[in-house]
Protein backbone atom coordinates (compact mmCIF):
# COMPACT_ATOMS: atom_id res chain seq x y z
CA UNK A 1 0.00 0.00 0.00
CA UNK A 2 1.54 3.30 -1.09
CA UNK A 3 0.77 6.92 -0.26
CA UNK A 4 -0.38 9.67 -2.55
CA UNK A 5 -0.51 13.42 -2.04
CA UNK A 6 -3.72 15.37 -2.27
CA UNK A 7 -3.55 19.14 -2.39
CA UNK A 8 -6.97 20.19 -1.16
CA UNK A 9 -8.29 23.72 -1.24
CA UNK A 10 -9.07 24.95 2.27
CA UNK A 11 -10.73 28.19 3.27
CA UNK A 12 -13.96 30.15 3.14
CA UNK A 13 -12.89 32.63 0.47
CA UNK A 14 -11.42 31.78 -2.91
CA UNK A 15 -9.00 34.70 -2.55
CA UNK A 16 -7.59 33.92 0.88
CA UNK A 17 -7.92 30.14 0.82
CA UNK A 18 -4.91 27.94 0.08
CA UNK A 19 -4.07 24.41 -0.89
CA UNK A 20 -3.27 22.14 2.01
CA UNK A 21 -1.26 18.96 1.38
CA UNK A 22 -2.37 15.60 2.78
CA UNK A 23 -0.63 12.24 2.55
CA UNK A 24 -3.26 9.57 2.03
CA UNK A 25 -2.70 5.80 2.06
CA UNK A 26 -3.97 4.29 -1.18
CA UNK A 27 -5.98 1.10 -1.58
CA UNK A 28 -6.76 -0.52 -4.89
CA UNK A 29 -9.64 1.08 -6.75
CA UNK A 30 -9.79 4.10 -4.44
CA UNK A 31 -11.48 7.26 -5.73
CA UNK A 32 -10.82 10.89 -4.80
CA UNK A 33 -13.89 10.92 -2.55
CA UNK A 34 -12.47 7.98 -0.55
CA UNK A 35 -9.30 10.01 -0.06
CA UNK A 36 -11.32 13.02 1.11
CA UNK A 37 -13.16 10.78 3.58
CA UNK A 38 -9.85 9.44 4.86
CA UNK A 39 -8.65 13.00 5.39
CA UNK A 40 -11.85 13.88 7.26
CA UNK A 41 -11.52 10.89 9.58
CA UNK A 42 -7.78 11.15 10.21
CA UNK A 43 -6.43 14.62 9.48
CA UNK A 44 -9.08 17.34 9.20
CA UNK A 45 -12.49 16.54 10.71
CA UNK A 46 -13.87 19.89 9.55
CA UNK A 47 -12.91 19.50 5.87
CA UNK A 48 -16.13 20.41 4.05
CA UNK A 49 -17.36 18.49 1.04
CA UNK A 50 -20.77 17.43 -0.26
CA UNK A 51 -21.48 13.82 -1.07
CA UNK A 52 -24.38 11.40 -0.86
CA UNK A 53 -24.45 8.17 -2.81
CA UNK A 54 -20.80 7.60 -3.74
CA UNK A 55 -22.10 5.83 -6.83
CA UNK A 56 -22.34 8.63 -9.41
CA UNK A 57 -26.13 8.69 -9.09
CA UNK A 58 -26.84 11.79 -7.01
CA UNK A 59 -24.41 14.37 -8.41
CA UNK A 60 -23.39 15.86 -5.06
CA UNK A 61 -19.59 15.49 -4.99
CA UNK A 62 -18.71 17.83 -7.84
CA UNK A 63 -15.25 19.40 -7.66
CA UNK A 64 -12.37 20.43 -9.88
CA UNK A 65 -9.69 17.81 -9.95
CA UNK A 66 -6.45 18.97 -11.52
CA UNK A 67 -8.42 21.78 -13.12
CA UNK A 68 -11.12 19.60 -14.61
CA UNK A 69 -14.70 19.59 -13.29
CA UNK A 70 -15.49 16.02 -12.23
CA UNK A 71 -17.35 13.89 -9.71
CA UNK A 72 -15.01 12.89 -6.89
CA UNK A 73 -16.74 9.52 -6.53
CA UNK A 74 -15.97 8.61 -10.11
CA UNK A 75 -12.36 9.81 -10.30
CA UNK A 76 -9.90 7.08 -9.48
CA UNK A 77 -6.60 7.81 -7.80
CA UNK A 78 -4.69 5.35 -9.99
CA UNK A 79 -5.46 7.58 -12.97
CA UNK A 80 -2.85 10.04 -11.67
CA UNK A 81 -0.05 7.48 -11.29
CA UNK A 82 1.17 8.83 -7.96
CA UNK A 83 1.38 12.46 -9.09
CA UNK A 84 -0.05 15.03 -6.64
CA UNK A 85 -3.77 15.60 -7.10
CA UNK A 86 -5.19 19.09 -6.79
CA UNK A 87 -8.77 19.18 -5.51
CA UNK A 88 -10.60 22.48 -5.74
CA UNK A 89 -14.22 23.57 -5.38
CA UNK A 90 -16.32 24.50 -8.43
CA UNK A 91 -15.25 27.95 -9.49
CA UNK A 92 -18.42 29.21 -11.14
CA UNK A 93 -20.32 29.46 -7.84
CA UNK A 94 -19.68 31.42 -4.65
CA UNK A 95 -17.57 29.50 -2.16
CA UNK A 96 -18.99 28.48 1.21
CA UNK A 97 -16.07 26.53 2.58
CA UNK A 98 -13.35 24.19 1.30
CA UNK A 99 -14.96 22.09 -1.45
CA UNK A 100 -18.52 23.31 -0.89
CA UNK A 101 -20.03 26.07 -3.00
CA UNK A 102 -23.35 27.87 -2.92
CA UNK A 103 -25.34 26.43 -5.82
CA UNK A 104 -28.66 28.06 -4.85
CA UNK A 105 -28.69 30.10 -8.09
CA UNK A 106 -29.36 26.92 -10.05
CA UNK A 107 -32.49 26.21 -8.04
CA UNK A 108 -33.77 29.74 -8.61
CA UNK A 109 -33.29 29.37 -12.37
CA UNK A 110 -35.04 26.02 -12.32
CA UNK A 111 -38.12 27.57 -10.71
CA UNK A 112 -38.47 30.02 -13.63
CA UNK A 113 -39.04 27.27 -16.18
CA UNK A 114 -42.67 26.64 -17.10
CA UNK A 115 -43.38 23.18 -15.67
CA UNK A 116 -44.74 20.15 -17.49
CA UNK A 117 -48.25 21.04 -18.65
CA UNK A 118 -50.37 18.30 -20.18
CA UNK A 119 -53.81 18.73 -21.68
CA UNK A 120 -56.35 18.88 -18.86
CA UNK A 121 -58.54 16.26 -20.52
CA UNK A 122 -55.70 13.88 -21.43
CA UNK A 123 -56.95 10.37 -20.58
CA UNK A 124 -55.05 8.64 -17.75
CA UNK A 125 -53.20 6.28 -17.94
CA UNK A 126 -51.21 7.93 -20.70
CA UNK A 127 -50.45 6.15 -23.91
CA UNK A 128 -47.06 7.20 -25.24
CA UNK A 129 -45.25 5.50 -28.10
CA UNK A 130 -41.66 4.44 -27.50
CA UNK A 131 -40.69 6.38 -30.64
CA UNK A 132 -41.97 9.59 -29.07
CA UNK A 133 -40.27 9.29 -25.71
CA UNK A 134 -36.88 7.75 -26.44
CA UNK A 135 -35.18 11.13 -27.08
CA UNK A 136 -36.39 12.44 -23.73
CA UNK A 137 -34.77 9.65 -21.71
CA UNK A 138 -31.33 11.09 -22.40
CA UNK A 139 -32.28 14.45 -20.88
CA UNK A 140 -33.88 12.83 -17.87
CA UNK A 141 -30.63 11.05 -17.05
CA UNK A 142 -29.32 14.35 -15.65
CA UNK A 143 -28.20 14.01 -12.01
CA UNK A 144 -27.89 17.78 -11.42
CA UNK A 145 -24.22 17.71 -10.49
CA UNK A 146 -23.93 21.20 -12.03
CA UNK A 147 -20.55 20.38 -13.57
CA UNK A 148 -21.88 21.64 -16.91
CA UNK A 149 -22.90 24.90 -15.26
CA UNK A 150 -19.47 25.11 -13.66
CA UNK A 151 -17.54 24.61 -16.88
CA UNK A 152 -19.77 26.80 -19.07
CA UNK A 153 -17.64 29.84 -19.88
CA UNK A 154 -20.70 32.07 -20.14
CA UNK A 155 -21.37 31.50 -16.44
CA UNK A 156 -17.85 30.75 -15.26
CA UNK A 157 -15.67 33.34 -16.99
CA UNK A 158 -18.16 35.96 -18.16
CA UNK A 159 -20.41 35.63 -15.11
CA UNK A 160 -23.50 36.20 -17.27
CA UNK A 161 -25.82 34.40 -14.89
CA UNK A 162 -28.47 37.06 -15.44
CA UNK A 163 -28.48 36.46 -19.19
CA UNK A 164 -28.18 32.67 -19.53
CA UNK A 165 -29.76 29.74 -17.68
CA UNK A 166 -26.83 27.43 -18.44
CA UNK A 167 -26.56 23.94 -19.97
CA UNK A 168 -28.37 22.06 -17.17
CA UNK A 169 -31.52 24.04 -17.81
CA UNK A 170 -31.24 23.76 -21.58
CA UNK A 171 -31.32 20.01 -20.94
CA UNK A 172 -34.36 20.34 -18.70
CA UNK A 173 -36.18 22.54 -21.23
CA UNK A 174 -35.30 20.12 -24.05
CA UNK A 175 -36.84 17.30 -22.00
CA UNK A 176 -40.03 19.30 -21.54
CA UNK A 177 -40.23 20.59 -25.12
CA UNK A 178 -39.78 17.13 -26.63
CA UNK A 179 -42.21 15.48 -24.19
CA UNK A 180 -45.09 14.24 -26.35
CA UNK A 181 -47.76 15.15 -23.78
CA UNK A 182 -46.52 18.66 -22.96
CA UNK A 183 -48.60 21.47 -24.44
CA UNK A 184 -46.50 24.54 -23.63
CA UNK A 185 -44.13 26.15 -26.12
CA UNK A 186 -40.99 27.49 -24.44
CA UNK A 187 -39.34 28.97 -27.53
CA UNK A 188 -39.95 32.54 -26.36
CA UNK A 189 -38.56 31.69 -22.94
CA UNK A 190 -35.47 30.20 -24.57
CA UNK A 191 -34.97 33.23 -26.75
CA UNK A 192 -35.40 35.81 -24.00
CA UNK A 193 -35.08 34.84 -20.34
CA UNK A 194 -33.15 31.63 -20.83
CA UNK A 195 -30.76 33.37 -23.23
CA UNK A 196 -29.95 30.45 -25.51
CA UNK A 197 -28.20 32.85 -27.91
CA UNK A 198 -25.51 33.33 -25.26
CA UNK A 199 -24.32 29.79 -25.80
CA UNK A 200 -21.61 29.65 -28.44
CA UNK A 201 -21.72 25.85 -28.56
CA UNK A 202 -18.13 25.32 -27.51
CA UNK A 203 -19.22 22.03 -25.95
CA UNK A 204 -17.32 22.01 -22.67
CA UNK A 205 -20.59 21.08 -20.91
CA UNK A 206 -20.85 18.00 -23.08
CA UNK A 207 -17.21 17.12 -22.36
CA UNK A 208 -17.63 17.09 -18.59
CA UNK A 209 -21.08 15.48 -18.26
CA UNK A 210 -20.67 12.37 -16.07
CA UNK A 211 -23.91 10.95 -17.47
CA UNK A 212 -22.61 11.30 -21.04
CA UNK A 213 -25.57 13.41 -22.07
CA UNK A 214 -24.79 15.00 -25.45
CA UNK A 215 -25.83 18.33 -24.02
CA UNK A 216 -24.77 20.57 -26.89
CA UNK A 217 -25.59 18.27 -29.80
CA UNK A 218 -28.87 16.84 -28.57
CA UNK A 219 -30.32 19.51 -26.27
CA UNK A 220 -28.91 22.97 -26.99
CA UNK A 221 -28.54 22.80 -30.78
CA UNK A 222 -32.05 21.39 -31.39
CA UNK A 223 -33.41 24.17 -29.18
CA UNK A 224 -31.31 26.74 -31.06
CA UNK A 225 -32.83 25.39 -34.28
CA UNK A 226 -36.31 25.90 -32.84
CA UNK A 227 -35.42 29.47 -31.86
CA UNK A 228 -33.94 30.04 -35.33
CA UNK A 229 -37.16 28.81 -36.90
CA UNK A 230 -39.27 31.07 -34.74
CA UNK A 231 -37.18 34.26 -34.74
CA UNK A 232 -34.65 34.23 -37.58
CA UNK A 233 -35.95 32.15 -40.47
CA UNK A 234 -37.46 34.55 -43.08
CA UNK A 235 -39.31 31.86 -45.02
CA UNK A 236 -40.79 30.39 -41.87
CA UNK A 237 -41.86 33.92 -40.93
CA UNK A 238 -43.62 34.39 -44.26
CA UNK A 239 -45.20 30.99 -43.84
CA UNK A 240 -46.58 31.92 -40.45
CA UNK A 241 -47.95 35.20 -41.84
CA UNK A 242 -49.65 33.38 -44.71
CA UNK A 243 -50.91 30.25 -42.97
CA UNK A 244 -51.46 31.45 -39.43
CA UNK A 245 -49.02 31.54 -36.57
CA UNK A 246 -48.36 27.97 -35.60
CA UNK A 247 -45.15 28.73 -33.76
CA UNK A 248 -42.55 26.14 -34.67
Amino acid sequence: MSDTTLLVFRGDSIKTGTEQPFQVPVQEGMVVLDAIHWIQAHAATDLACRWNCKAAKCGSCSAEINGRPRLMCKTRLDEFAGEPIHVWPMRAFPLIKDLVTDVAWNYLVNAEITPFTPKTDEPVPYRMAADDVERVFEFRRCIECFLCQDVCHVLRDHDQKAAYYGPRYMVRIAGLEMHPKDTVNRTALLHREAGIGMCNITKCCQDVCPEHIRITDNAIIPLKERVAGRYYDPIAWVGRKLFGSKAD
Partner: peptide, 16 residues
Protein backbone atom coordinates in the same frame (compact mmCIF):
# COMPACT_ATOMS: atom_id res chain seq x y z
CA UNK B 1 -10.24 25.21 -23.63
CA UNK B 2 -12.59 23.89 -20.97
CA UNK B 3 -12.10 25.57 -17.59
CA UNK B 4 -8.91 27.24 -18.86
CA UNK B 5 -10.09 30.84 -18.87
CA UNK B 6 -10.75 33.27 -21.69
CA UNK B 7 -8.36 34.73 -24.23
CA UNK B 8 -10.59 37.70 -24.85
CA UNK B 9 -11.70 40.31 -22.37
CA UNK B 10 -14.66 42.61 -22.75
CA UNK B 11 -18.38 42.17 -22.86
CA UNK B 12 -19.50 38.78 -24.06
CA UNK B 13 -22.72 38.58 -26.08
CA UNK B 14 -22.51 35.03 -27.41
CA UNK B 15 -24.38 34.66 -30.68
CA UNK B 16 -26.98 37.32 -29.97
Amino acid sequence: ACARGEGVRGRYTGET
